[in-house]
Amino acid sequence: MKALVTGGSAGLGQAFVARLLADGCDVVSLDRSTADGAANLFQINCDLGDREALDRTVPAIVTAGPYDLVIFNAGVNATGRFEDIPEDVQLRLLRINTEAPMVLAAALAGSGAMVRPSKMVFVSSLSHFTGYPGAAVYAASKDAIAIYARSIRRPLLRLGISVSCVFPGPLRTDHARRHAPENADASQRMPADDAARDILSAVRAGKATVILGKQARIVALAGRIAPRLVTWQMRRFIFEKLSATTW
């Protein structure tokens, strides 16, 4: 079995790579930086925020397949007041979080780089259900990818590709720590390794929507029933406590 993981050098991506290697898969990791090597790990370097670099790298990604599993995990955040975050940072965030996975998904599904049957996984965010004051463009990028995943699920199923979308809440990663308000309680966050394990088992079971843990499911439900109230709570607990602009 062969898997492709974007952003496999750190955080949740690294946890996916470690789990998949432990399960005996061949893993292709696509990331800006190279991580520690392993026998069945093949690393491709590419900055997903750079269009030309991505277009140059697509043939190598296709050739390294075909894949039984693709996880579009790479993502960045930019937190602070919307107007304090520079334009080029916002643009780059949209390219990495939304555009790159869409371009790659179309390229892989259209080129025969996917085994049939196979799985394709998009990583959105729990913010899809709650809103995210303090990261308005991140929220935009994650809503966009969630709806893209939902839109292509049926047509890709006809090609033997089953599409899932994951909505992780706060994880215990460096990425989450950097963007959370100071003094936020990290013990409440789910360890990346547990998240990777739960996501992989849900995806193998063919679930279209994956929300991790009871707490996140309650938050997602609350966000659907009382969207305004939940976004207001997000404002109080995140936006009003952010002391700096971070990207």
């Binding site: 919307f82 913010s127 308005a136 463009v137 935009a140 990028s141 809503d143 969207p227």
Partner: peptide, 13 residues
């Protein structure tokens, strides 16, 4: 959908 997520968060901000 991206615009919808953006509007929801920015409205609050």
């Amino acid at each position: 959908a991206g615009l919808a997520g953006f509007a929801r968060s920015l409205r609050s901000e």
